[in-house]
């Protein structure tokens, strides 16, 4: 047995328990839930098979369309907000002086807080009467800009995207810093000797060297955004009148508030399909960029 094959064997044996658990607790329920999606079921009583009825209803459901639109806003805000900001911060903070370590901890801090706490904090920032944001606007003389930030359907979704971005910059930044620190210093030194300016170094050396990490974070970012639920649930509950509903909150409301288990399951399955498509699409786009 070659060394390589033996290592592979060890990896497989090591992964097996986790893989089994993963299969039974993630893969099987997903298939199960997809199966429920073909039924009209209230949770109690008989299940009625209705074929693709739930899926046809999803296509026609205006609230599903709103949730999808809102969810795409969150995905866009995450991919074009979290990733670049985290990347910029990681480039600035990649060394380990005391000051940089402190700033790094500060940026990472929101990740440590539970999303319920974050939801309540931001709820008070946006509070229509006693909110910090409105008081601040008043104080700098922009009192006319004061808003009910979370109940105005024209802006509430964008206002909700801000805490989502803020919340998740930390972990991506840490991953980028780790990747940047993994770049062999010889390469950087060699390019410096060849006379590469900082910008050139960034685009020709550093970004290409950490490109795979960026790809992974984009995948995590998209799948994470499509699952966004807790923050929205705490801050607006998907309201007012479904205007900040996301796919996950709409699925939750259908399943557990109005007990349409079948329809909720069909929405879950749609979320999986949509996120697979988005992730595959983003990977295709990013492949073209490098090769």
């Amino acid at each position: 047995m070659t060394a390589k094959a033996r290592i592979r064997g060890v990896i497989i044996v090591g992964l097996l328990p986790a893989l089994l658990v993963f299969t039974f607790f993630v893969i099987v329920p997903i298939l199960w839930s997809a199966w429920y999606g073909f039924y009209d079921w209230k949770g109690i009583g008989a299940m009625k098979f209705i074929g693709f009825g739930n899926y046809l209803e999803i296509i026609k459901d205006p609230v599903f369309a709103t949730s999808l639109r809102n969810n795409l806003i969150v995905v866009a805000a995450s991919v074009f907000g979290q990733v670049p900001i985290a990347l910029a911060l990681s480039l600035v903070l990649r060394q380990s002086t005391l000051f940089q370590r402190i700033i790094r901890s500060v940026v990472f801090l929101p990740m440590v807080l539970s999303s319920v706490v974050i939801g309540i904090i931001w709820g008070y920032i946006y509070h229509p009467q006693i909110g910090i944001l409105n008081s601040l606007l008043e104080w700098i003389g922009l009192g006319s800009w004061k808003q009910a930030w979370l109940s105005n359907p024209d802006i509430s979704m964008y206002m909700l995207a801000i805490p989502i971005i803020w919340n998740f910059i930390g972990p991506y930044m840490i991953m980028y810093i780790a990747a940047l620190q993994n770049i062999p210093s010889e390469i950087e030194d060699a390019s410096a000797i060849d006379g590469a300016k900082p910008m050139r170094m960034l685009f020709s050396i550093r970004l290409p060297m950490i490109w795979d990490t960026i790809k992974v974070t984009v995948v995590l970012c998209i799948s994470g955004s499509l699952k966004t639920f807790d923050l929205i649930y705490v801050m607006t509950g998907g309201g007012p009148a479904h205007s900040t509903e996301l796919l996950a909150s709409y699925m939750y409301n259908n399943t557990f508030s109005i007990y349409r288990f079948g329809y909720g399951s069909a929405i879950s399955t749609s979320i999986i399909i949509i996120s697979t498509v988005l992730i595959a699409g983003s990977q295709l786009l990013m492949r073209r960029n490098t090769r």
Binding site: H127, P128, W149, L150
Partner: peptide, 21 residues
């Protein structure tokens, strides 16, 4: 009703009333 009533909850509304706002 006050501004932004769709984004505050039942308890906050009771506090508003109790405090004479």
């Amino acid at each position: 009703f006050q501004e932004g009533f769709n984004s505050i909850d039942n308890t906050q509304m009771e506090v508003m009333f109790a405090q004479g706002q």
